[in-house]
């Protein structure tokens, strides 16, 4: 018996992670010389994702009042407080980067903010998964989990950035360094997800076969890898945007599936109350 899927947390970690990583791509692209219009668009969209994600996470707490209480305990450095800290840091960097793009014509400032943002964005993706490292949950208690969170967020964020930037007239996304970076993220995602699945073992991972095959394997692994590979080839920009959008959608679905799987298999080693209700209080196979 596992805890119920906490949808707010599933959405939060995916949206915020994706936003953070999209922002990371924007930072990198900016450093490479992408126009501020483009990075600004990407940053804006990233910020929206992060904010929506943060709102989702609040929905997980029973009342918004609690979110403030959580803020007052920032320094406990528990999973939640680190998430909150990173949410704050990333949002602040996004705002600063955006302001820098709009009002400071200083490349160095943009570069520093962009690179810091890139780092913070990825860290945000990581910490949204790191809070689940709890010793009593063998299925969660592995660094492979936050790494897979990071990987799925990176690939989704990467595709999002690629689609948005090209759609808004960007050029760098169609250049090799970013394409390679995106492909690397796709591979990283595939590797970390596979590693986490390996940690679970196939039997556990396939607990919900549809989720496993359609959600994780097809949407999360096959389609993003394929899209990233296709994008490596020279494409007209409309086609590029279309493929990136498909990649983004698949990566989101894959990332969400992974997060759902985490809850579905998230049994502690004993889960008495849930088991009691489900099994008429019987432990039969002991």
């Amino acid at each position: 018996m596992a805890p119920k899927i906490q949808w707010p947390l599933v959405l939060f970690s995916m949206l915020a992670g994706c936003g953070g990583c999209c922002f990371a791509f924007a930072g990198v692209a900016g450093a490479l010389g992408e126009s501020t219009t483009v990075t600004l668009w990407a940053t804006g969209i990233s910020l929206v994702l992060v904010v929506v994600g943060a709102v989702c996470s609040m929905m997980h707490l029973a009342t918004p009042r609690h979110a403030f209480a959580a803020v007052t305990h920032l320094l406990s450095f528990s999973g939640i407080s680190v998430e909150l800290i990173m949410l704050g840091v990333v949002s602040a960097l996004m705002a600063a980067y955006g302001a820098a793009c709009l009002w400071f014509d200083n490349e160095l400032v943009r570069l520093v903010l962009g690179m810091a943002g890139a780092l913070a964005g990825v860290v945000l993706a990581f910490v949204t998964g790191h809070g689940y490292l709890i010793s009593s949950k063998p299925t969660w208690n592995t660094k492979k989990l936050p790494l897979a969170y990071t990987g799925t967020a990176l690939v989704a964020g990467g595709f999002l950035y690629a689609a948005v930037s090209v759609a808004t007239g960007g050029v760098w996304a169609m250049e090799l360094p970013v394409k390679l970076l995106l492909a690397a993220c796709a591979v990283f995602s595939a590797v970390t997800v596979a590693a986490y699945l390996g940690h679970l073992g196939m039997q556990t991972a396939k607990k919900n076969p549809t989720l496993f095959w359609v959600g994780i394997v097809v949407c999360g692994l096959v389609v993003p890898l394929a899209c990233a590979a296709i994008l490596l080839a020279p494409l007209p920009s409309m086609a590029f945007v279309a493929v990136a959008a498909v990649g983004f959608a698949a990566a989101m679905a894959g990332g969400l599936s992974l997060r759902m799987l985490m809850w579905i298999v998230g049994a502690g080693f004993l889960f008495f109350f849930e088991d009691a209700q489900a099994n008429r209080s019987a432990i039969l196979n002991c």
């Binding site: 707490l61 029973a62 009342t63 939640i80 010793s135 998230g266 502690g268 004993l270 008495f272």
Partner: peptide
């Protein structure tokens, strides 16, 4: 308590409960 339920996830025995009503 802010109702984050991490303690529920962390309890190795699944013997905590969460009040939806009071969060």
């Amino acid at each position: 308590c802010i109702g984050c339920q991490y303690c529920l996830y962390a309890c190795p025995y699944g013997v905590r409960s969460f009040s939806e009503e009071d969060g």
